[in-house]
Design a protein around this nucleic acid. Structure first.
Length: 807
DNA sequence: ATAGGGTTAG
């Protein structure tokens, strides 16, 4: 669909005041925030400006409105210097007020206040003060707003009016540590000046009281409301919104029910309140009533209800709302249609219809950062990283969210190196990362085992004042844990000002991973003692910790208390972990009983746990049964075959092992690539095991080449010959290096005595067919690597090793 | 020439 450009404005005819006035208004209507329109807009504006000059209408006292309109248009254009120049030639408070307001609306606080400062105090009037207070209020800066208000009070000649109080109250309402005493104080001041007679002041007072956390404050708000002789829709809406913000949707609803003539805004506020509280069903119910009672639906209604559908996963409902919007044929201006379209893009992309989402996105007349971010995260959520990267490159404007989504999208998609590259690019472009973006970059370091880099980022976090951010803190904690730096992880945990359940879980898991099983359990108990309810992840973590430490009875205990004390039904992952724990302890019989009491049919991961338990116990009969089940459920999963065949080999039943491998070949199952090594004399032979035609094999090769070259350059390669088997000839002779999720053999291993203890990155995925798993921690790149030879079979799935042995 | 509420992306 192509849009025809509008016919040019007949600017040349502008010579009379009414013609200029008309043209200025026309031009204002043509303004659009789209950057593509900016230059043509500015050209027309300058032309009109010239006409006004020749007609001598600029600064003519009788036509001041023309000057003001022109200045306002300039504040919408990229040329912000001209209004300042024009103002200096005629610095009156009226012009200043108009400019303050225009710049404040556009979010340019500094420009806004510069015009206030430019007017000498003696020439300022109340309106200019009011506009300036409101400018600070918009920028959420309470303190300067108050000080401007104070200087208004101290001016001697001027008195604050209802506008002054309304703006002041809204500014104070944005303070972080708003105390009820502030509200009362301001309430008194407004009362004594008589400003409370104005509806806007009373409404702002209600809003202010509702922003205090105390219950008494909400009573005060109610008292203001009850004492108002006249209330308007805003009065009620403020009350409803106030309760929603406090998280008390029920109170909001009961206020809503009090309202007599139901203004649509109150409905919208109530619906969006439900959406924000995750009570989508109630939002739908209200929406239906709105339709029945013929309350006019507007863009706010549609946007909220579409978002409710997307959040609740009710895509059919969302689609029918979409139909309803189309049928009602609303003539929304592009600005009003924008949020609806954004919500639609969200709906379809969350509903898995990314193509539909993209089509809507493409046909949108007006797009903003939200639109771009929506389609970007739509691709990220679907794992289409290349598409996402394309969108990211094409974005005409980005904000910190865009960067954050892209960086953490790369991390999530396993492309941590790309995440860090992008993060560095961001800094090179002088974009300031937000705490979530830092969290993404730090997570990338954790995945890559890049402790040094992670520590640097830690320093940046402190520098930027993000120390209090729980997302950054949790990312740091996890990163240190993955890099084996438990001490640092613990330190982060101790100094974090805001600890949430994610932090607790991360710390417990860090302890569990690194062999401090008992401490992990203690920390878990401490968490419960401090009144934090553990969630399903906490239990998964604690079961894993028990697994590592071999604490079978404790594992059982926590498993039991999960549903008994915390009302959480164990999922298949919890069962799988407990079964694994039992199997490892040789209590396969109990595992067998446990399966029978499970409220659901055993899943593949349960059978896998059973199978590896049987391997430990040599219970081949039950093991073969478990394998049968696995074959039936996931016939293409290579791990099963490998696990079973190795189980047979370990039991000395070579024929059975061979039979399983043949079955695997017959069914065309490809083996995931992985590495294995064997020491022969002074040589280490490194094998790439698995299917060379496996889609991931290529990636492993590429990875090894890069890392091998890097290691060679750094001089970390010992004299020993490394041979790579199962590879193309030119790919031989690379040193393998454990890195990110790809397991390989660490360089520098030979310098270490075998049998030393190892601290390991948990997230190494490719373990494949190896009999010896080598892992490392990247502390000080190589020199401090300690290694242990683990003579057992590992199979990794979803980032975790089936043996549960993370050392 | 100035004010107060409801919308969308993670």
């Amino acid at each position: 669909m192509t849009l025809r450009p509008p016919p040019p404005l007949p600017l040349a005819v502008a010579s009379l005041p009414h013609q200029c006035s008309l043209l200025l208004r026309r031009l204002a209507e043509r303004h659009s925030p789209a950057p593509a329109c900016a230059s043509s807009f500015l050209r027309a504006l300058r032309c009109l400006h010239a006409r006004l000059l020749t007609a001598k209408l600029l600064h003519a006292p009788s036509h001041r409105h023309l000057t003001l309109r022109l200045l306002h248009l300039y504040t919408l254009s990229p040329d912000l210097a001209t209004p300042a120049v024009l103002f200096r030639s005629d610095p009156c408070p009226v012009t200043a007020t108009s400019l303050v307001a225009a710049h404040a609306t556009a979010g340019r606080l500094r420009d806004a206040t510069s015009f206030f400062d430019a007017v000498p105090p003696a020439h300022r009037d109340t309106v200019l003060y009011n506009a300036t207070i409101s400018a600070f209020a918009r920028a959420s800066l309470a303190a300067p707003a108050v000080s401007v208000f104070r200087s208004l009070l101290g001016s001697g000649t001027l008195r604050p009016d209802d506008y002054s109080f309304t703006a002041l109250l809204s500014a104070v309402g944005q303070m972080h540590n708003l105390a009820a005493s502030h509200c009362t104080q301001l309430h008194c001041a407004a009362l004594s000046s008589g400003a409370t007679a104005a509806l806007s002041v009373s409404n702002a007072l209600i809003a202010l009281y509702m922003k205090c956390d105390t219950t008494e404050a909400s009573w005060d708000a109610r008292k203001v409301l009850d004492e108002m002789p006249n209330k308007d829709d805003l009065t009620w809406t403020t009350m409803v919104v106030g309760y929603v913000r406090r998280g008390d949707v029920h109170a909001a609803r009961s206020v809503f029910e009090e309202v007599d003539g139901k203004f649509d805004v109150v409905w919208n506020a109530m619906i969006s309140g439900y959406v924000q509280s995750g009570m989508c069903a109630d939002a739908f119910e209200l929406f239906r009533r709105m339709v029945l009672e013929k309350v006019p639906l507007d863009e706010f209604t549609f946007t909220s209800i579409l978002s409710a559908s997307a959040n609740a996963g009710f895509f059919v409902h969302g689609k029918s709302v979409h139909g309803q919007i189309i049928r009602s044929q609303p003539d929304f201006v592009p600005e009003a249609a924008l949020p609806i379209n954004n919500a639609l893009v969200t709906l379809y992309s969350k509903g898995g219809k990314i193509l539909v989402a993209k089509r809507i996105f493409d046909t949108m007349k007006l797009k903003d950062v939200v639109s771009w971010n929506t389609i970007l995260s739509g691709y990220i959520d679907r794992g289409c990283l290349d598409k996402a990267a394309e969108v990211f490159e094409a974005m005409p404007y980005k904000n910190d969210l865009s960067w954050m989504v892209m960086v953490s999208g790369y991390v999530h998609g396993g492309l941590s190196e790309d995440a860090l590259k992008l993060f560095n690019k961001m800094r090179a472009e002088d974009v300031k990362p937000c705490d979530y973006t830092y969290a993404g970059a730090i997570a990338a370091c954790g995945e890559l085992g890049a402790l040094k880099h992670g520590k640097q980022l830690h320093a940046h976090i402190v520098q930027c004042g993000f120390e209090a951010s729980s997302s950054a803190g949790n990312a740091l904690l996890t990163m240190y844990a993955k890099c084996g730096a438990v001490k640092d992880a613990r330190l982060v945990f101790l100094v974090m000002p805001n600890i949430d359940s994610v932090s607790w879980n991360a710390m417990i898991s860090a302890l569990g991973q690194h062999g401090h099983g008992r401490e992990a359990l203690e920390l878990f108990d401490q968490m419960v003692a401090e009144g934090i309810d553990p969630d399903r992840i906490s239990f998964l973590t604690i079961l894993t910790a028990c697994n590592h430490a071999g604490l079978v009875d404790e594992g059982f205990h926590y498993f039991e208390s999960m549903k008994m004390h915390f009302g959480i039904n164990p999922g298949e992952d919890h069962y799988a972990r407990l079964i694994d724990l039992l199997g490892r302890a040789g209590r396969i019989g109990e595992a067998r009983d446990l399966i029978k009491t499970m409220p659901f049919e055993p899943t593949p991961s349960i059978w896998e746990a059973i199978l590896s338990g049987c391997r430990t116990n040599g219970d081949m009969e039950f093991g073969a049964y478990a394998a049968d089940q696995l074959f039936r459920m996931t016939p293409q999963h290579d791990g099963t075959y490998i696990l079973l065949s190795n189980t047979y080999s370990a039991a000395g039943r070579w024929l059975d092992a061979a039979r399983v491998r043949k079955l695997m070949r017959d069914r065309g199952v490809k083996k995931e690539p992985g590495c294995s090594w064997i020491e022969v004399g002074s040589k280490i032979h490194v094998f790439l095991v698995g299917d060379t035609k496996h889609p991931e094999a290529h990636e492993v090769y590429r990875f090894l080449e890069v890392v091998g070259a890097r290691m060679r350059k750094l001089g970390y390669i010992p004299d020993t010959k490394f041979v790579l088997h199962d590879m193309e000839p030119h790919q031989k002779e690379y040193v393998l290096f454990a890195h990110s999720e790809k397991l390989a053999v660490g360089f520098g291993l030979l310098k270490l005595p075998p049998g030393a203890t190892v601290t390991v990155l948990k997230n190494l995925r490719i373990c494949g067919d190896c009999h010896t798993a080598m892992m490392f921690m990247s502390k000080a790149v190589g020199r401090e690597i300690v290694v242990r030879d683990v003579r057992r079979f590992h199979h990794f799935k979803d980032g975790e090793c089936s043996c549960g042995n993370y050392w």
